[in-house]
Amino acid sequence: MTDLALILIGALLVNNFVLAQFLGLCPFMGVTRRYEPALAMALATAFVLTTAAAVSFVLHHAVLVPLSLEYLRIVAFIVAIAGVVQLTERVMRASHPLLHEVLGIYLPLITSNCAVLAVALLAVGESLSFLETLVFALGAAGGFSLVMVLFAALRERLEHASVPEPFRGVPVALVTAGILSLGFMGFAGLGG
């Protein structure tokens, strides 16, 4: 039980996927200009990330390992992720049209979110069990959503700040992310 808690805290805060491991920066910089889209993107990614990690785990242990085709994991996982994204979109459109309207345009973008692939690869690389993989994915998804929402709120404030002309937009956003990352370094050492 403590192991699971440590994995969760580690992926959520200590080794935060965005701020400490530089994964998923494209949506982090691209979709955080406004608060609502950032929240929608964070939720959609969190769902796909967790599902894709579980699917990749099964794929790896039920298909690739028995056939000793582990070297094909990149190809296999990227196909699994694309499949999960497609399936999520279809199911959501049929069952929750309202939700689909809000999240729909972000779903296809998730296929090329490197955090999703990285979670699947890391979980397999560290030979986590199925339960550990799920907890790890949940932590990663939570950490990603947390910083997306925090950063979007910060950037809405930044819009009205008087920033030197050449630094407007992305440069000052990067520096802001650096300061946020500095804050997250305070979690280092938490939970061993």
Partner: peptide, 15 residues
């Protein structure tokens, strides 16, 4: 360290 990556990238881009 990670914060330095963000900050230096931001400064280089601004420059």
């Amino acid at each position: 360290l990670p914060p330095g990556a963000f900050i230096i990238a931001g400064l280089l881009l601004g420059l």
